[in-house]
Design a protein around this nucleic acid. Structure first.
Lengths: 133, 133
DNA sequence: CTAAATGATACTAATATAGTATCATTTAGT
DNA sequence: ACTAAATGATACTATATTAGTATCATTTAG
């Protein structure tokens, strides 16, 4: 089981790189040269970050991307939500149907507690916090 | 993202049911009648639990399964490991290769911390502990 | 006008998840 | 000895998710 998928990971790397360039507009070409991530995939990821308003984009010649927020305002959980959907560790198989075994719901409660702890930990991780270390 | 997959979930339901039957040998037929889970899939799961020495099996007519351990000795993490492999939230994409960005490793450290917290929480969840509530 | 960039969208490949199907073997009961 | 009811082992199939690629349209600096 992975906590973050590859697109979330690449996104974080890209954002860290962009943060280090201050407010310079960076093209995909420049980014993949630095990060060594696959070009079309990286491009798709940046476009998604733009749609999510985490990046701003500039079209045309000399175009590219810059951060739309301060590094400390960009949370890892936000990236997870963009690329992996809502963080729900706990989806029950017998949604809405009557659960045939009351004990299983105890299991759901336990997993919900774990989910909350994970969310609390993730809440501390931002582009800014990774940049500093 | 899910913490447990369907086979882990069914396995836990099955083990809870078996624990409630004390030391009576339970066949797959009887189990699926109770849990309403798909028959061949449930069967495969019980066979895997047998291989993992969490259940004992009896072949032939009137055969079936019983717990091989006490309920409080069967941990959810064990089931996760049987059906989902080792719990590693943190696999790095750039395994062994030189990481092109030192900052990403900071991310790994943070995720490792989360992994440890999850493991600590999971360590408290056994068949026995779910049975009591 | 053109080259270099992103926007939008559709497609493909590989892997993981959620199962099913089947034949071989074992065993209790007659 | 025979049979029905069970598991053991193994191979197969379907669906969803992950990890990408490809392409055409549009924008813009020079």
């Amino acid at each position: 089981m992975k906590l973050i998928t590859r697109d979330t990971d690449y996104a974080m790397r890209a954002l860290i790189f962009l943060a280090q360039q201050k407010n310079r507009v960076i093209s995909v070409s420049e980014l993949v040269r630095e990060l060594k991530t696959p070009r079309p995939f990286s491009r798709k990821i940046l476009q998604q970050l733009n749609k999510a308003k985490i990046l701003r984009s500039f079209k045309g010649n000399h175009g590219g991307f810059i951060l739309a927020k301060k590094p400390k305002e960009i949370f890892l959980v936000d990236l997870i939500r963009v690329f992996q959907g809502p963080l729900e560790l706990n989806e029950c198989i017998f949604k809405k149907k009557i659960c045939p075994n009351r004990n299983c719901c105890v299991l759901r409660n336990r997993i919900s507690r774990i989910e909350n702890k994970v969310l609390a930990e993730l809440g501390a991780i931002t582009v800014g916090s990774l940049l500093k270390e």
